[in-house]
Design a protein around this nucleic acid. Structure first.
Lengths: 238, 238
DNA sequence: CACGCCAAGTGGTCCGACCACTTTGGCATG
DNA sequence: CATGCCAAAGTGGTCGGACCACTTGGCGTG
């Protein structure tokens, strides 16, 4: 990290830096096409294998996008592109980290919900209402759709803030597999009913454009989930 | 995303999924060593090139770590490992996204600072005080150390919450290059003095273990930075 | 003019060789 | 016997070239 000079560095890594520099210098802009892998490797003086590994690295970072037979393109470089890797955290996280992720959500979601109360458009509020009804219409059984609907509801709220970066981060912290795991042990009791009530309160606060109420409702909701998960983790402590 | 079946998928991608599955199934745990590239490629029925690209992908995601001549290891899978890629966002972000990142920080830092007020240990508070003095001792000139010290101060606060995930996310949103860019146009005037005053207020609130005051001070601080950056971006609008 | 096919060019995969580095165990040295 | 060195084995890193799979655009056919 703090090494003053650039001593020895892998060939592939140099290729990565070169491409990043090309983008930073505006040599290739978002959405534009890069030179051929063969061209790039020749220009940078590396083998095509190494060049491919460099491209693979930038692809997994969401900076580049390779289209088979068509070429390699720079993505739009939107936050959503670059933060997609985020979901990996939620995928492999366990125990303590899971709680930590929820704690971060407890910081973000209330603030985001409050912001949404001030910024959401009427159309966005209508969409939220529709999502809410869809969730109400379903039976009290646990299924993939339940998780999906809950996810969609919260994601729609965060998107209503108009902050794409925030939405991308929150989405990463709320990956499908993550939520499925949280819900797994809690399909019983009146949990679903309570969550629905929370959602209704949040929606009402948004429609009333009341940031304070929205913040409070969102906080309560996340705390509820966090509490259940905490009890669950404490039970089967590793 | 929603395609029902797993039709065609790249060989490399399958290799990535296989390794992820190995980790998820506990076949290899954090810190343990994976089979050799040659073994893995043979076992999964792919070429070593593709296997290497898969490993490269997981390496850039922070899941694996390759040591030249020694083998490929699974990282500790700590949040810090997996969120390192985050800094890429701050590196390539421009204009609007920069503001959005700051908006997210304005949501996170106050909450984190308030939490730190309740949780920080005496040793951590002492360290914060030392960092503060170090910043005070420096002249009012803009240099890399100024950015570095500011970064360290805020990072130390967030780490005091004991939430490693939160710390990793915040670090990603506060990368060195990001801050350098924010500061670039504002080395003049009494900016440095004002920021110092903010830091002192935050530190006092932490020492007093006053969450409310800490939240307020942190909010003020981030808003100040956000406001300056906003004016800057509005000036040289693209 | 519209349609469909084909060839050129691109990324995707595979192979085999060699290089650079780490590790280890045995050998020579004290 | 203890110590340190060094060579060999094994690992990831790089290379070059071949071939496959796919997209694209233009050409020829109806």
């Amino acid at each position: 990290m703090h090494e003053p000079d650039g001593e020895r560095t892998s060939v592939t890594q140099r290729a990565v830096e070169s491409v990043k520099a090309m983008i930073a210098d505006g040599e290739v802009g978002p959405g534009e096409r890069l030179p051929t892998e063969r061209d790039l490797s020749a220009r940078l003086g590396v083998s095509r294998s190494s060049m491919r590994e460099a491209i693979r690295a930038l692809t997994t970072l969401g900076v580049l996008e390779a289209r088979h037979g068509a070429g390699v393109y720079v993505t739009a470089l939107r936050p959503a592109d670059l933060l997609e890797t985020f979901s990996v955290l939620a995928e492999v996280s366990q125990g303590r980290t899971l709680l930590e992720v929820l704690q971060v959500r407890r910081m973000l979601e209330p603030a985001a919900t409050a912001l949404a109360a001030a910024r959401a458009s009427d159309a966005q509020l209508d969409r939220l209402g529709a999502l809410l009804e869809r969730m109400d219409g379903e039976p009290d059984t646990f299924c993939a759709d339940t998780v999906s609907a809950d996810l969609g509801f919260h994601q729609a709220i965060v998107e209503s803030t108009g902050n794409a970066t925030l939405a991308a981060i929150n989405e990463g912290l709320s990956s499908r597999t993550f939520n499925a795991r949280v819900w797994a042990g809690h399909r019983e009791a009146g949990l679903t009913a309570k969550l629905r009530e929370d959602h209704v309160l949040i929606h009402e606060a948004l429609v009333a454009r009341d940031p304070d109420a929205a913040r409070a409702a969102a906080t309560t909701h996340v705390m509820r989930v966090e509490r259940w998960l905490g009890a669950d983790l404490a039970r089967d402590a590793s």
